[in-house]
């Protein structure tokens, strides 16, 4: 069985140690976490954990079942038809060609978010794959620091 990439949303009670239960399950059972984001769901006592993982069919099935078994888990969504976005922040020197950088960012749903005397900071938000293309393209402007955000996803 070949490995596939999966985006899984886990809706959990927003209570202490719930993230440890989720991440501990991955560590303890030897599953991969490629990225993980977590935030409260507005107007509720729930949180959404978005996990990107990979594994074969049996492993993915186990991951979703084991996640569902956790007592504070309300729902596990194995995304198929989804919109996914990842954000990235990148710092460049102001000596770089700022106009070029701005055009590049705009191609990836981004722009300049901070401009200082020595550095500028940009953001981009797109699918993970496209964020990688963006970062490849950004290499020629010698980025000083790159911060990727992990992905969030919503079922279509």
């Amino acid at each position: 069985m070949e490995d596939v990439r999966r985006v899984i949303s886990v809706i959990v009670m927003n209570e202490s140690s719930v993230l440890a239960r989720v991440s501990g399950l991955f560590a303890g059972r030897g599953y991969n976490i490629e990225s993980l984001t977590v935030a409260p769901i507005p107007n509720s006592d729930l949180s959404r954990v978005t996990i990107v993982t990979n594994g074969n069919k049996r492993v993915i099935e186990q991951i979703t079942k084991q996640l569902h078994k956790l007592v504070p888990t309300l729902k596990v969504i194995e995304h198929e038809e989804m919109v996914e976005k990842e954000m990235v922040l990148v710092k460049f020197s102001s000596d770089q060609n700022i106009a070029d950088i701005q055009v590049l960012c705009e191609a990836y749903n981004g722009g300049i978010v901070n401009a200082g005397e020595d550095i500028i900071i940009i953001m981009a938000a797109d699918e993970s794959k496209r964020i990688e293309y963006f970062l490849e393209a950004a290499q020629r402007y010698s980025p000083i620091e790159i911060v990727r955000g992990g992905i969030v996803a919503i079922e279509r």
Binding site: S16, S17, R21
Partner: peptide, 16 residues
């Protein structure tokens, strides 16, 4: 205790 016993209990609580 809840950290150590997480993988070997069905569920656990730290009463706060």
């Amino acid at each position: 205790a809840v950290g150590i016993s997480r993988p070997c209990t069905k569920h656990n609580y730290l009463v706060d």
